[in-house]
Amino acid sequence: MAREEWTRAKAAKNHVREALESMTRGAVRCMYCDDNRGTDIDHFQPLENAPLRAFEWPNHLLACSWCNSNAKRSLYPVDADGVCLLVDPSAEDPAGHLRLLLKSGLYEPVAKSVKGSETIRVFGLNRSELVKGRMDAFYRSRSMLRDWHLRCQDADPDANRVAQALLDSPFIDVVYAMIRLKPAVAGVVVGPETVPALEAWRAEHSL
């Protein structure tokens, strides 16, 4: 019955979709993979588990059709106490459970976090196309950061446009992972030529 009501509620779904799209970046990215365009309203806790949450605003996220229909589907792992084992990107910082390895493009759980492991598994965060996309984004982001920094130093008005283009790019999680690098390892990971730009970006676009 909940699914039937949700299917018929076209006006409500349009309202929810517009609100979610206003909260996303750039070209309306999927809130799970940050790669594809978000096209589907996903019930974070599936209707099969919680039919009464069909129209509950905190239970709605914008996902691409792949993440919604092929990866997550109706999966909703919980622990022995019924607590969800998925990272809810609208309610908690994913960095508390997930770590992005910049040079490999792979995610790994932080400190063997069960929630991190289950999130990687359920959403397929390490599927090959996402790994390649993050690796490409790593090299692209370093170049854009250096370009942005040079333009800032030259007082070039296009610096802001470069910064916005970077923020609107897919896989912005790569840039956030770079920001979180400790100074002692930043040079090794991003290269010493990128460190000044990264430090300037961190100061202006801190998390």
Rank of each mutant, 00 (worst) to 15 (best):
G124P: 07
N160Y: 12
D156W: 10
A50S: 09
A12G: 12
E129N: 13
E193L: 13
L101V: 10
E193C: 10
W6S: 06
C30D: 08
M144G: 12
H205A: 05
A54Y: 08
A155H: 15
P46D: 02
R121S: 05
R127W: 02
R161A: 14
R146A: 05
C30P: 08
A184P: 01
N126T: 02
S141L: 07
R202S: 11
L75F: 14
Q164W: 08
G38Y: 06
C33N: 08
N70Q: 15
D168R: 09
V195A: 08
K10G: 11
N68Y: 04
Q153L: 15
L106I: 09
P51Y: 00
S22P: 07
W148R: 05
N126Y: 07
F44L: 09
R180F: 03
R17D: 04
Y176T: 13
L130D: 00
Y107K: 01
L100S: 03
V189Q: 06
R180Q: 07
E56I: 11
G187K: 11
E199W: 03
D42Q: 05
A184W: 06
E193A: 15
G116T: 09
A80N: 15
A11I: 14
A2N: 09
V83F: 09
A200G: 07
A165C: 08
C84R: 11
F44N: 01
S141R: 03
K182V: 06
R29P: 00
H43F: 04
E4Q: 13
D79G: 09
C30F: 08
W57F: 08
N68C: 01
N160P: 02
N14M: 09
S104A: 06
L106E: 15
L47F: 04
E108K: 05
L166E: 02
Y139L: 12
E108N: 00
Y32S: 09
I172G: 12
V16Y: 14
V114K: 13
P89H: 10
A159T: 12
K132M: 13
R134F: 03
G187Y: 11
A159N: 10
V175T: 03
P183Q: 06
G38F: 08
A155P: 08
M1Q: 14
P89M: 07
D93Q: 00
E56N: 13
